[in-house]
Write a protein that binds this DNA or RNA. Sequence first.
DNA 1: TCTGAAAATGGACCTTT
DNA 2: AAAGGTCCATTTTCAGA
Lengths: 158, 158
Amino acid sequence: MAVTLDAFDRKLLAEVQRDAQVPQNELGTRVNLSTAAVNRRLRRLAEDGVIDRYAAIVSPEKVGCPLTIVSMVEVESEQIDLLDSMKRTFEQCPQIQQCYYVAGEWDFVLILTARDMEQYNDLTRQLFFSNNNVKRFKTLVSMSRVKVGLGVPVDIDG
Amino acid sequence: MAVTLDAFDRKLLAEVQRDAQVPQNELGTRVNLSTAAVNRRLRRLAEDGVIDRYAAIVSPEKVGCPLTIVSMVEVESEQIDLLDSMKRTFEQCPQIQQCYYVAGEWDFVLILTARDMEQYNDLTRQLFFSNNNVKRFKTLVSMSRVKVGLGVPVDIDG
DNA sequence: TCTGAAAATGGACCTTT
DNA sequence: AAAGGTCCATTTTCAGA
């Protein structure tokens, strides 16, 4: 599953995770490689799925979603088809940025973004109260998004 | 803080959040605008901070970070400088993808990525056990990353 | 690694509302 | 003024030698 990456690949990945807009010739001077080599490596990293995709990161506040909420959900039954159905529901909800199926005191952890508490209450009704398989859930309202990203460390370690 | 967005802006934001690599002329045909208009709007969205940045999303598994963990932390004291110091520590840790300062039963929620459990244990020592201001913490190990993204809904609602 | 063609970006300028 | 469209220059990407 994992892929072999050399020091150049790692540097490139670190760069493009931070900023995917810097041109390949600039990347070349930063990592000490020709533009063409950078081009080939980035293409290969994308082909191999190391780079999953390129995305614009938009500011939630600026588009009227100032509220970030962490919800934890415990299910009634862990029957496969019930779980799958819940996963699909969570995946499809546009306000759910992230959903992790976890082991421990809870079964799902969700990161949500919402316009206001009213919208979150609505979501709560749709996602939790009207779902028979939700035993209980807990809400943690974010007061500050201290760090937000999907960056993966590639610097030295594996 | 929020910004006024028309239907064109919203469509463009939806597109580039999903895939930032589609060229502006293609975006133009999709949203019914000339290439130049798309160019101008994207530039303005970036200048206004609506688009925070462009980033490559890399697959954690492929680079040897198959483990995703959600940690919740309760602090001993909420004294400002102690909190700030913790926030800085969390921000700087490369394995911490996200850190939310929350209200409720816990004070911080962290999303971490790690090579293996041993690395997580090390992090645990560095971040939690050796920090006097950590009263307790809880670990939820992700078995499945059902949905992972930073996408913000821009379709219809504000 | 270099060179050059094709593609994409972004500015100039004019037109519309 | 604010925003769109067309055209053109510049920059960037990317393949072949």
